[in-house]
Structures are given as structure tokens and as C-alpha cells.
Design a protein around this nucleic acid. Structure first.
Length: 318
DNA sequence: CATCCGTGGCT
DNA sequence: TAGCCAAGGAT
């Protein structure tokens, strides 16, 4: 019953898939893992250049493990959620020291790595090792919701029913299951998008339960992600300062930025000479965080290991 | 299980 | 333009 869907999606994927470097058969499992972690909540177009830099600089897990975690965070750049860089570095260390430099090829083995959850473990097992694994990401969930369940959007959180459905739809043989996973994911990314899906270009539009039902609206309103004034925004601004700093950033500089006292570009430059570029400091200052928020954010970054306290000030971890 | 955690392109 | 939202994971 699902054979028709399998054929349609696999054929569509064969001709319409984007030519992404981590899909190259010559890409190593390590390269696939790096791509999957970078792609967690970050769009492909922004990952591409950073992934290339990482692969050139750290072609094997052991190469990254030999670096300091701070270098990983700095090379992560502005991909967002920098703790992912930290966990990727930790995963590289585990791979280098406990797995002789080779990635585990089973879902369970992958799942044990830092920063690797259910999605990433299944994705690497499938895309790097050709295993039959049930990959469930936001794209696949959305396609399943529309195509099979007739809903405009998947539930707010992954449900057991969705896992069962994904497993039930997964082709039996390894090779087809890999193409199905990749194809459904690509379909969700390019055609069956969250907003304004391109149904006229969909290879399985005729089988879509959501279309058959007259494209009913979502049964709930997704709540947006708060940003302005949040700790995340302040943490991000602090991290940008630390990434741009070639030496520890004195606490007095950071603390001074939280005050209402205007800070001119001149003294900022003088205080942080050689330790940070002024655009990053200016951005943090423009946020005008309350002293307690700034303190809370710094404490959070220290607790997360994204920053360390030195006598000279705050810096990326060594 | 809900919340927290960055960033910037797109509509 | 202001929001929406993207190949999630950890707690």
C-alpha cells in the first residue's frame, strides 16, 4: 500500500534533490555527523560555508579533538546555539579516544555521543552507513501530518503515534529506506514547506490526505519564539564579543556595558585593545541589559562551559 | 514534558 | 515590517 508512495518520492528525489556536499558518496561519516549537528535548527544555506571550512580544517574527528573546545566555538561562527559546537568537540573526543577515531555505525552507539539525539543518530546511521533507521525530523513530521494524517501541521511535540507512523511507512530494505528518508525530508524542505507549500509541484499531491480534506487550517497556533530582551539575545551578544576577542575580555568592560552610562567607541576600544572588535561590543551595549541580567547570562555561559573565567577576564574555553 | 538555547533570511 | 521558523538536544 505504501509502495506507490515510496516509488513516487524516491523517483522525485533522484531528479530534484539538492546537490549537497554531505550527500556525496565520498563524504565521510564524520562529515555527515558534522553536517547533521550544524543543521540542527539552522538552514542549509548558512551551514554550507562553515561545513566546508570545518572539513578542510578538521577532516577527521581526531583533528577536531586535538583542538581546544574554544576553537570549535570560534569556528562555529554565527550558526547559532554554540553549545552544539561544544558538544561536537566533545563527541570528537569520544570518537578519537574510545572508538579509535571511527564513528559508531549503530544508532545506539551514535546516540551515546554528546549532542546526538534520536534524530541525529538515525540520520547518521541512515545517511552515513546506509542503515535502515526511522528518521523523524520536523520536515518528515510535517509531510506525514499532511500526506497521511490530513493535518496542516504536526503536533507541537513529537508523539508516540508519529514514531509508529514513521516506522510503519519506512521501506523494508536498507537502500530504499535511506532514499525514502532523504526524499521525504527533501520534500518537506523544498515542496511541503510550513508556509505556502508548493502542492502543484508535489509528486504525491494526489495521495495527500490534507489536500483531499480541503486543506483544513492548523488545529493550534504555534507560539513564537521570544527574542527581544531575552537572555538568549544577551548571551548571543556576549558570545559574539568573546569570539572576536584574541585575549580575555575584562569583566569591567562587560559590566560597564550594562550601565546606562554612555560608552563611547573610544574608551571601549581602549579598554579592549586587541581583545575584541568594537562592533560586537557596541551591539551588546545597544541591548542595555540590566546588571542582574548580564550577570545571570555570564553565569549561564560559564555553567555551560561556553566561557571560562580567567584573571584577565572572560574568554572562550581552552 | 515544557522550556531553554542563536541567528538571520524570508514573507 | 514584525513575525515566522529552520535536518534538535538536554534538562
Amino acid at each position: 500500500m505504501t509502495a506507490k508512495l515510496h516509488g513516487a518520492v524516491v523517483r522525485w528525489f533522484a531528479t530534484e534533490a539538492r546537490d549537497l556536499p554531505w550527500r556525496d558518496p565520498r563524504c565521510s561519516p564524520w562529515g555527515v555527523l558534522v553536517s547533521e549537528v550544524m543543521l540542527q535548527q539552522t538552514p542549509v544555506v548558512r551551514v554550507l560555508p562553515v561545513w566546508r571550512e570545518w572539513m578542510e580544517r578538521w577532516p577527521r574527528a581526531a583533528d577536531l579533538a586535538a583542538e581546544s573546545p574554544g576553537e570549535a566555538v570560534r569556528a562555529w561562527g554565527r550558526l547559532g546555539y554554540p553549545r552544539r559546537a561544544l558538544r561536537l568537540h566533545a563527541a570528537a573526543t569520544v570518537i578519537a579516544t574510545e572508538h579509535d577515531g571511527e564513528l559508531p555505525d549503530s544508532e545506539d552507539g551514535l546516540l551515546a555521543l554528546p549532542g546526538v539525539g534520536g534524530y541525529t543518530a538515525a540520520a547518521v546511521a541512515a545517511f552515513a552507513f546506509g542503515r535502515r533507521a526511522s528518521v523523524v525530523d520536523t520536515n518528515i513530521r510535517r509531510v506525514h501530518a499532511r500526506l497521511v494524517s490530513g493535518d496542516a501541521l504536526p503536533a507541537p511535540a513529537l508523539t508516540a503515534a508519529e514514531r509508529r507512523l514513521a516506522e510503519a511507512l519506512l521501506p523494508d530494505d536498507d537502500a530504499t529506506s535511506v532514499r525514502w528518508n532523504a526524499g521525504v525530508m527533501e520534500l518537506g524542505a523544498l515542496i511541503c514547506t510550513a508556509r505556502s507549500p508548493k502542492c502543484s509541484m508535489c509528486p504525491v499531491a494526489d495521495e495527500c490526505a490534507w489536500r483531499a480534506a480541503g486543506e483544513p487550517p492548523p488545529s493550534y497556533v504555534p507560539k513564537g519564539q521570544a527574542w527581544h530582551g531575552t537572555d538568549r539575545q544577551v548571551r548571543g551578544a556576549i558570545m559574539a564579543v568573546l569570539r572576536g576577542a584574541s585575549r580575555p575580555v575584562p569583566r569591567v568592560v562587560l559590566d560597564g556595558l550594562a550601565t546606562a552610562e554612555p560608552v563611547t567607541a573610544e574608551p571601549v576600544t581602549a579598554l579592549t585593545e586587541g581583545s575584541a572588535t568594537s562592533p560586537e561590543l557596541a551591539r551588546l551595549h545597544a541591548l542595555a541589559p540590566a546588571p542582574e541580567q548580564l550577570e545571570r547570562c555570564i553565569a549561564g555561559l560559564l555553567a555551560d562551559g561556553l566561557a571560562v573565567e580567567l584573571t584577565g577576564g572572560l574568554a572562550l574555553p581552552h
